[in-house]
Design a protein around this nucleic acid. Sequence first.
DNA 1: CGGCTTCTTGATCAAGGTCAACCTTTGTGG
DNA 2: CCACAAAGGTTGACCTTGATCAAGAAGCCG
Lengths: 260, 260
Amino acid sequence: MPRASAAAAFCQPCPVRRRPVFKPFTETELAFVQGMWRPRRSFAPDADILRPDEKGSALCTLWEGWAYRYKALPGTTSDGRTRCQILDILPPGDPIGLESTLTGSSAHGVRALSSVQVCVHDPGAFDAMFTACPGLCRAIMAIGQMDMRRLDHRLALLGQASAPQRLGFTVLDLYDRLRRREMVAVSDRGAVSLPWPLKRRHLADLLGLSCTHVTRSFAELREAGLVERQGDTLLIKDRERLVALSEYVPVDEVGCRGML
Amino acid sequence: MPRASAAAAFCQPCPVRRRPVFKPFTETELAFVQGMWRPRRSFAPDADILRPDEKGSALCTLWEGWAYRYKALPGTTSDGRTRCQILDILPPGDPIGLESTLTGSSAHGVRALSSVQVCVHDPGAFDAMFTACPGLCRAIMAIGQMDMRRLDHRLALLGQASAPQRLGFTVLDLYDRLRRREMVAVSDRGAVSLPWPLKRRHLADLLGLSCTHVTRSFAELREAGLVERQGDTLLIKDRERLVALSEYVPVDEVGCRGML
DNA sequence: CGGCTTCTTGATCAAGGTCAACCTTTGTGG
DNA sequence: CCACAAAGGTTGACCTTGATCAAGAAGCCG
């Protein structure tokens, strides 16, 4: 079958899965996941990969580019946009549509942050996974717990931290998640840098702040010599002090095994 | 074996599981869950059922009484208590310790809100579940998604809603969760009531507010004729208007199947 | 060079935090 | 049954954080 062979060509040497966060597949698992393979789809920045109200939607994995989970809210912000809370940032490798596959509907949407390609899986085959691949199933459950743990962190952040702390925490959290995916770089003089596709309004929606206040908090961190924005990458100039200011505690997510 | 027979005596006609939120077990599932059965444990109010830093801790299910998941934070509030964010309220039937069973450690603690009894399960047998009971495994994964969905809601709440909205939303959410567990009552003149074990400080930690401001917000709802506290039950006097004020959208969690 | 969007800065205002006093309820021992 | 203590709840005065509104400054295309 052309479909299976195309999958094999992609899944086995998958560039995303080669990163150390992901556990390698067993042969059975690889075969199973390849059997679920469907052609990849592309999305432009700001397009909905998963609409908030969508029923019976596709199950897929973020293969290239970034996205975010969000929840649309009634009403509108002061600057015209519809109110929205960003729930989580999704870097490459993260699954999309698990909730709707498991429960039949999704209470959140997923939107592309940059240009995005997703690997599509056949949701009809999903239920078979529970009998065919118990180990994979356990791994996905563990990933779910990790996501929940990060949500817990974020909840504590919105409940308890000041605006600059929220911002600093988010920078550090993103950096650490990307480091595990080998997507960060080391600059000179001990500074490190990470890709930064987030606009002010994304940060505002993510942190529960207004755009202007995000700017102010950013300025605060910049003036303290902690971070520096350079186009679409962000420099962390003094991790030590940034950690102290944000009361940052890393959320570790080692040895996950998804189904890219 | 006395152990197995004791389990059978409890699990089969379990008073908690008889409620409509829970799906009935199949025979295999019942047998499996009974095989994990260990003697129940009791906790006094304010005792830690699961300490935040605990490794390799027990897996159990809330059998009687209420608890809450929380995250302790460095520093201390103005009134002396250590700072803490309550992540979720756990009514009877909710599982405890899934995260640490699946990932080896838990980033949150669980504390008893009232006098509590938990059904203890053998965490060593947990991994066997993935091969022995795929259906149960799927059900637990779906529960995880439901919990995540409620966390999403709460995140949007802390990010976007005013203090009275947060309070109203929480009242309505708790009411609906308890209704599905048949733990609410109807009062006269269309009002409904629910058990209310939450002190001001719990609400403060849950909603990311100060104790005094919780009082003020409560007073606001009371003066608007929406809710009324009577000892340790809460009256909802005008659900309609409370829903409108809080922009409440129910988080449904029908047909879950746990492993009590 | 306009015409976009995004970012920045300043002035003003409201929501909520802090501190402190006081009131109510609950529980306990005499 | 009362007295008292301790915990929790309520209220008010004041202050800080962050929202809102509005006007520019940079970028970033065509």
